[in-house]
């Protein structure tokens, strides 16, 4: 009768037992500093499935993050920079690969979340999840190769070795894509953390549950607490505070496309206050569009959150 009964009985149990099972209703929390706190505001919001006919299906409640949650997340991210940026590139690659492993083991759960959130068939959702897992592996491979490709030994007119090496910029705020709730999310988070940045992610506003599942995967993989912090809630509420936050070094505006009440130009202007690196959303002019995340990426998202350190070393004997 009730639509929530679909998750009810296992085969073999009698009908009376099945009806007596009390629903486990879910109210998810944020992911900050390796812990799962409630929003300090105490708010949560109902998340509904996409697609289908008739009234949207209720999926779960998600925490509705506030500006103070964003502030706390930045503190956690800042605290994690030293350790994560200081880890060897090889080690970071292993950790990213480990995330892929954990996701692979929970692929069914992710497929279910993606199917419900994006209104896909299970088969299509499985393809998306596999692509997301592959994306982790792709960026895991890049961690210890970025310096060779983006670094350089520069020819200089003097007896010096002149070496340019890429370094992480620090704390990156990421507005995750609104439509592609898992593949898009991984496609923006992985390149930022691959090089040693830490991130504060604002998950897709209407499709936050795959991000919550990813947080649970990250918490049980080897990613140190604070390296990835995931906020769920209203993008337009949190984004301006992250854009103007002086302790945030860069902001990825991918999720400004199709986000209600978000003007990415305003966010970029706010970011200029402390010379943030700003990665604009795809699209032309003021129109932001969400790109096709299934395409094989290039190094642009990695390069966007790097600084270049150049060292002059005397050549004398």
């Amino acid at each position: 009768m009730s639509p929530t009964a679909t998750r009810g009985p296992t085969p073999g149990t009698s009908a009376s037992q099945a009806n007596s099972r009390v629903d486990v209703r879910k109210t998810y929390k944020l992911y900050i500093g390796g812990a799962f706190p409630r929003s300090e505001s105490g708010r949560s919001y109902a998340v509904h499935g996409a697609g289908g006919r008739g009234t949207p299906r209720f999926l779960a409640n998600a925490a509705q993050g506030s500006r103070k949650d964003a502030r706390d997340a930045v503190v956690a991210a800042r605290g994690a920079v030293t350790g994560w940026a200081g880890a060897t590139a090889y080690n970071r690659g292993q950790v990213l690969y480990r995330v892929a492993e954990v996701m692979e083991g929970r692929a069914d759960q992710f497929a279910g979340e993606v199917a419900a959130a994006e209104g896909l068939t299970t088969a299509r959702a499985r393809v998306v999840v596999s692509a997301a897992i592959d994306r982790w592996v792709w960026y895991a491979g890049w961690t210890d190769k970025v310096a060779q490709v983006l670094g350089a030994v520069n020819p200089v007119a003097g007896p010096f070795f002149d070496i340019s090496a890429p370094e992480p910029t620090g704390v990156v705020a990421v507005l995750a894509p609104q439509a592609s709730s898992l593949l898009g999310l991984v496609s923006v988070v992985a390149p930022a953390i691959a090089t040693g940045n830490t991130v504060v992610v604002v998950a897709s506003e209407l499709r936050p549950l795959p991000a919550v599942a990813l947080a649970e995967a990250l918490a049980t993989s080897d990613v140190p607490g604070g390296v990835v912090n995931i906020l769920t809630g209203v993008t337009a509420e949190m984004a301006p505070w992250l854009a103007s936050h002086r302790d945030v070094n860069a902001i990825d505006l991918a999720g400004a496309a199709n986000a209600t009440g978000v003007s990415w130009g305003d966010l970029e202007a706010a970011g200029a206050e402390n010379l943030k690196r700003v990665l604009r959303p795809a699209g032309t002019g003021t129109v932001a569009v969400e790109p096709d995340w299934t395409l094989t990426p290039d190094l642009s998202r990695i390069r966007a959150f790097l600084e270049t350190k150049t060292v002059w070393h005397p050549k004398g004997r």
Partner: peptide
């Protein structure tokens, strides 16, 4: 300033 500040400041 109305914006969160950081240790760099």
């Amino acid at each position: 300033t109305g914006a969160y500040s950081g240790a760099d400041y």
